[in-house]
Amino acid sequence: MPGVKKVGQRTIQFANPPVVMATASIVGPKEGEGPLADCFDKIVQDTYYGEKTWEKAETKMLAEAVEMVIKKAGLQTGDIDYLFAGDLLNQTISANYAARQLAIPFFGLYGACSTMYEGTILASILVDGGFAEKVVAATSSHHNTAERQYRYPTELGSQRPMTAQWTVTGAGAMLIAKEGSGPRITHATVGKVVDQGIKDPNDMGAAMAPAAADTIITHLQDTGRKPEDYDLIVTGDLATVGKALVEKLTQQQNIDLSKNYTDCGILIYDPSQDVHAGGSGCACSAVVTCSYLLEEMIAGKYKRILGVGTGALMSPCSCQQGDSIPGIGHAVVFEMS
């Protein structure tokens, strides 16, 4: 028998919608030159961020974003019940090492680029369920740490195909609380892993699009809503190729997203920045959601947003062994009353 907080196949309807008390975003130099530059809390001009390695720089950004969001809410680290965090690196070291210095009870996550939304859903469940009062969800990615783990050394003179995406350097954090003012999280639709057989790791938008479309379609069915019920529907990091595919896939189910649908990977960079299809990485959906999207909600531009964090769940090993790339999409509804 489905619980009272569950509607339809796999959508959570929060009984006491948790509040996004504060958000924080830190980005690297390239994102700081992009169209959303004014929205971010901090732009770091050096990809090393004063550290010896890019991995250490990523950890520093993540820890700082968490500290910043706590400070912005006027709280202390000790006030936070739990921290959900994850990143793209092997054994999620950025999140683990940031948690080492933060000393907040910690759940490490891996949802690839969907981690921000995965963390947001889990944090909201804890808060709504009465297990916690204040929870932080955070994530980070770094262009150079991702390149050296997933692709080639950064100084190698190679050409990227037009479908390739640019991993966002940055970290985003969201403080989700039981009480307070700010946008509320009313629904969440948990994604299924969907794989339509795309094998090209340089075409992750196409690999993730079926999962995102599946989640959007299921969310609308579960809630009985239409795309027009949202001021904005936004996916995490599908970029131009994936966005076009989501539009086609939803159209096949007679759902028209053409009016109010966009993607964080398209919003974060200007086409002149030579990022090919657009942005990707955990930080892509995280920094756009934790800055531009939620700020515009508070400013009154949007009343209700459906955000879908998307992730490509492959590894360099699975790609080399010829396996296809599974994708996932987690949806969260933010609402400003």
């Binding site: 195909p161 037009m162 479908t163 339509q196 057989g197 795309i198 075409d203 196409a206 699009a209 079926p210 131009t240 190729v241 076009a244 595919l245 086609k248 896939l249 090919h276 299809a277």
Partner: peptide
């Protein structure tokens, strides 16, 4: 068959290599 159909669709929206 479904996967094949999707892969064809994905191919059709790919930006052209220069």
């Amino acid at each position: 068959a479904q996967q094949q159909q999707y892969q064809q669709m994905a191919q059709s929206v790919k930006p052209k290599q220069t």
